[in-house]
């Protein structure tokens, strides 16, 4: 039997630990993806993801079901991401340890994905990451939630606490900046929007 999120929450509150594990299994990937695209660093996104579930677990008693569980979880994750961004901006760079033999370490590494593949993938996404990094937090958040989590404008508005029209404006402004920046980095892409392609032809 498949339980809904809200049913799993109720069971978790009543002491069924496996129900909370099921919630983690369901939402771990989306939360990690949200964190990664918001803060841009794999390891830190993992930390944010774990911290999100820890906080959710601790605050589960306070969850009254006013919003969907996923929205509640997204809000926790976004708050943690914004905390991380604030903290990161005031942290200085440190010097590398001098006694690290980089070549020996690299030679000993056995990556599951080849370095060449990794480089190709990095090159492919670097332009997008750079362009996204230029956006103000609120525009980036709106784009990530809409583009990758398929939330409606209304859901995003409820989640970030702003009017519906503001969400659309942020998306428009953010996409316009991205368009300009991606054009600078070169390369073009054919539109994949089925609705646009179909309706404008």
């Amino acid at each position: 039997m498949t339980w809904t999120d809200e049913e799993l929450v109720a069971r978790s509150i009543s002491g069924d630990a496996d129900s909370f594990n099921e919630l983690i299994r369901r939402w771990e990937r989306p939360i990690y993806a949200l964190a990664y695209r918001t803060i841009g660093r794999e390891e830190d996104a993992r930390d944010v993801c774990q911290e999100t579930f820890l906080r959710a677990f601790r605050a589960l008693q306070g969850f009254r079901g006013q919003a969907k569980f996923s929205s509640w979880l997204y809000r926790i994750a976004l708050n943690l991401c914004h905390d991380w961004i604030r903290r990161e901006r005031r942290t200085p760079v440190v010097q590398a340890p001098e006694d690290v033999d980089l070549m020996a370490l690299a030679a000993a590494a056995g990556p599951s994905e080849s370095v060449e593949d990794l480089l190709a993938r990095k090159d492919l996404t670097r332009a997008v990451e750079r362009a996204m990094a230029l956006l103000p937090d609120e525009q980036r958040t709106a784009i990530v939630l809409k583009e990758y989590h398929d939330l409606t404008f209304q859901e995003i508005a409820d989640l970030v606490g702003c009017p519906l029209s503001t969400v659309k404006t942020r998306l428009y402004q953010g996409l316009t900046v991205l368009r300009r920046e991606l054009a600078k980095s070169g390369g073009s892409e054919r539109p994949r929007l089925r609705s646009v392609a179909g309706r404008t032809s």
Binding site: R121, T125, V128, E129, E147, R179, S188, P191, L193
Partner: peptide, 12 residues
């Protein structure tokens, strides 16, 4: 729409 296509290739 082209921007969206590029964004679609940005995978974690």
């Amino acid at each position: 729409a082209g921007v969206r296509a590029r964004l679609g290739r940005w995978l974690p």
